[in-house]
Nucleic acid binder design. Sequence first.
RNA 1: GGCCCCGUCGUCUAGUGGUUAGGACGUCAGGUUUUCAUCCUGAAUAUCGCGGGUUCGAGUCCCGCCGGGGUCACCA
Length: 494
Amino acid sequence: MIDAHVRTRYAPSPTGVPHVGNTRTALFDYLLAKKYGGEFILRIEDTDQDRFVPGSTEKIYQICDLLGLVRDEDPVSGGAYGSYVQSERLEIYQKYAQLLVDIDAAYPCFCSEERLKSLHEKDKFAKYDRLCRKLSKEEVQKKILAGEQYVLRVKFPEAGFTTWHDLVQGKLSLPNNECDDKVLMKTSGIPTYHLAVVIDDHLMKISHVLRGVEWMVSTPVQLFLFEALGWEPPIFAHVPLLLGPDRSKLAKRHGAKSVLGYVDDGYLPEAIDNFLFYLGFSYKDNSELLTLDQMIDIFDEKRIQRQNAIFDIQRLNYLNSQWIKKMPTEDLFLRLNAFIPSEWNDEKVKQILILVKERMFTLRDFSPAAEYFFTAPAVNLQSVLDQSGHTEDETKAWFKTAISVINKLIVLPTPPVIARSESDAAIHPGNSFSSENLHLELAKAQVTSGFTPKEAFMSLRVAISGRSVTPPLFDCMAILGKEETLKRLSSVFS
RNA sequence: GGCCCCGUCGUCUAGUGGUUAGGACGUCAGGUUUUCAUCCUGAAUAUCGCGGGUUCGAGUCCCGCCGGGGUCACCA
């Protein structure tokens, strides 16, 4: 239970489209804020001008929108503590950087890139040797006057431990000599993460910093800064990472996609939310379909998993297929739009969807499973014969029978509704062209045909669809319509 | 390599000293079906990373080891 007013923030860098691991942290940020009736804030951390990728900020908004992560404050709609873009807050950082120098918590460092590089060449894991920390005020003054370039480094304690209580990790205690004097301000006058994050989190009144465990070991530096500035630090919560199948931090090389990529692949945002939630959290058997609001209720910061989770696409597939099945056909139809040719008739698509949704894992599965309804397949006689198990003449006779049976059924002005849809046979009298009557009449004919049900119906299936795997045969015929069904059946032997 | 975190079926996990170590995904088999999928039923898969303790009793507590991960940038 948390008493304080909760304000969390998702603070991505616009260095590309964040992958799902990063997005999961955003989900947890959102959940924590909403669980306690607080605010969820989006801040763009664009202090690395070199790695900036145009367009990423928009992609970040898109991802949040898709997943339903509603922001209370962000760069677009603003808020009481803006700007929410770090590059627009440079004067603020400069002011506090100066303050840190004044209170002797930071110092200018004139070391050249070459010197730093040589330090690392000698020892791959070398820390900054704090050379400039020993410079006298006069020496510093002289160098600055001489126009020497410098960065600002934190004057981090050389000994002792930094201890804090992490919401997820529990009590953490790191030896101070493991941290060196991190750069706070680059020569460009732009702050590094360590400085900017502390200032922003304080100024924006962030109560809980939820971020990936990769930040755990740099927390002492930030804690030191909070203390130096006389500010109350937020509560830190370091959440585990998402790992690729090879167990290393999920990355592009694993084919790690962004939420946008998965949506493109036909995954529903609802399923992605659900999937991300279960990766690192458990509720019942971890397979129930949960809405965002339900996740808010269920979420408990104390129960966030501590071990890294491996991204398993099969679980996403499962959740996605379940969401597809659960979703009303009308709603699902709306989602399908981007995945089907625009010339396909809406009503027909909906009818097919009722049949096909049971068999879909992603929205992309629809189109290949539906195309023969719109385009007559090329059917070769041999494949029909393979299914019928009879000679060409016998098969031809069976088809003739089937055709005449179908011919007797009358097409009503109302569309032939398939068996599984909301409508029922009542509005379709016994002699009408409907799935149910097709079933009844063709089954009767099959009995006297000398064909087994399998032979009789599989051959018809191949004839109308060109394939041996389709939804129930009579439903398919009903959707195809009497005319088209007959056309396809007769064309086999013409 | 130093430091830190983690370690229960392939995967997500339940488990807070006494359980036949449970569930779900996946896998396999059977049932249903004219096919596939759905659905239903069932099965296999975990010497709880390993080794020592503590205890009448340990997945649960302690120690050591091993394994995995993270981090050690004027990147976040």
